[in-house]
C-alpha cells in the first residue's frame, strides 16, 4: 500500500487516480500509523512552498516524515513535494524545508517566461548511475509547472535533468530511498504512469 500524504493542498486526486490506474493500492492519509504501515510514501503538492510547509506542520507531519524517510521507507516527492524535501526555498521570503536533501530551492534564473509550464525532456544525468525511476524512460517528455527549482545541480543525487530557458533544472533526484520529481508524473501521460510503476516496484 502506498500512502499519499494528505496535508490539504495540491492535486492529490490525480495522484491517487494514477496509482489506481496502474493497479496499485493507494490511500490518502495524514495518520502517522498509516504512514508507518505503508510500503511507500508520496508527498504530492502544488502551490507555495511556505504554505505547504505550514500545512505539513499544522498536521504534525514533519517529524514522522523525516523519521520514516531516514529509516529507509521509499518516499517520492512530486513538484512542491520534491521542493519541500530540500533544505530551504526563497519563495515568498525564506522558508525552511524538510532538509532530507541539502539543496536550496530558488527562483529559476532565466530570461524565459515563468512559470515554466509545459513538457520537457528528462535526461538521465551523465555522471550518475542510471535512474531507477527512469528505467525504460530516458529522454521522455514529462509535464512541468513551476517557477522555482533546484538549479546548477552538481551532486550525484541528481538523477535526471531538464532544460528551460537555457537553464539546467534538477528534474529527478534519487538518494537511496528518497526520490523526487520536479515534474508531475501523474500528468505526464504514459511515460508518467510508467514512472509511477517503477516507483511502486521499488516499494515492494
Amino acid at each position: 500500500m502506498i500512502a499519499v500524504i494528505d496535508y490539504g493542498i495540491g492535486n492529490v486526486r490525480s495522484v491517487l487516480n494514477a496509482f489506481e490506474f496502474i493497479g496499485a493500492q493507494a490511500v490518502l492519509t495524514c495518520d502517522p500509523v498509516e504512514l508507518e504501515r505503508a510500503d511507500g510514501l508520496v508527498l504530492p503538492g502544488v502551490g507555495a512552498f511556505g504554505e505547504g510547509m505550514r500545512r505539513l506542520d499544522t498536521r504534525g507531519l514533519r517529524a514522522p516524515l523525516t523519521r520514516l524517510a531516514r529509516a529507509g521507507k521509499p518516499l517520492l516527492g512530486i513538484c512542491l513535494g520534491f521542493q519541500m524535501l530540500m533544505r530551504s526555498s526563497t519563495e515568498q521570503g525564506q522558508a525552511e524545508g524538510l532538509a532530507l536533501l541539502d539543496h536550496a530551492v530558488v527562483r529559476l534564473p532565466v530570461e524565459a517566461r515563468l512559470p515554466h509550464i509545459g513538457w520537457s525532456r528528462v535526461k538521465a544525468a551523465a555522471d550518475a548511475p542510471p535512474p531507477k525511476l527512469l528505467a525504460g524512460l530516458d529522454n521522455e517528455l514529462f509535464y512541468f509547472v513551476h517557477s522555482y527549482g533546484v538549479v546548477k545541480p552538481k551532486q550525484s543525487i541528481i538523477a535526471g535533468l531538464a532544460a528551460y530557458g537555457g537553464c539546467e533544472i534538477a528534474a529527478l533526484i534519487e538518494a537511496d530511498n528518497v526520490f523526487g520529481t520536479q515534474f508531475h508524473p501523474e500528468k505526464s501521460g504514459e511515460a508518467g504512469l510508467q514512472m509511477l510503476r517503477n516507483f511502486r516496484s521499488l516499494c515492494l
Binding site: 507555495a48 515568498q92 512559470p115 509547472v145 517557477s147
Partner: peptide
C-alpha cells in the same frame, strides 16, 4: 488564489 495555491494554478 496565488498565495494559497501558487500562481501556476
Amino acid at each position: 488564489i496565488a498565495s494559497v495555491y501558487g500562481s501556476q494554478c
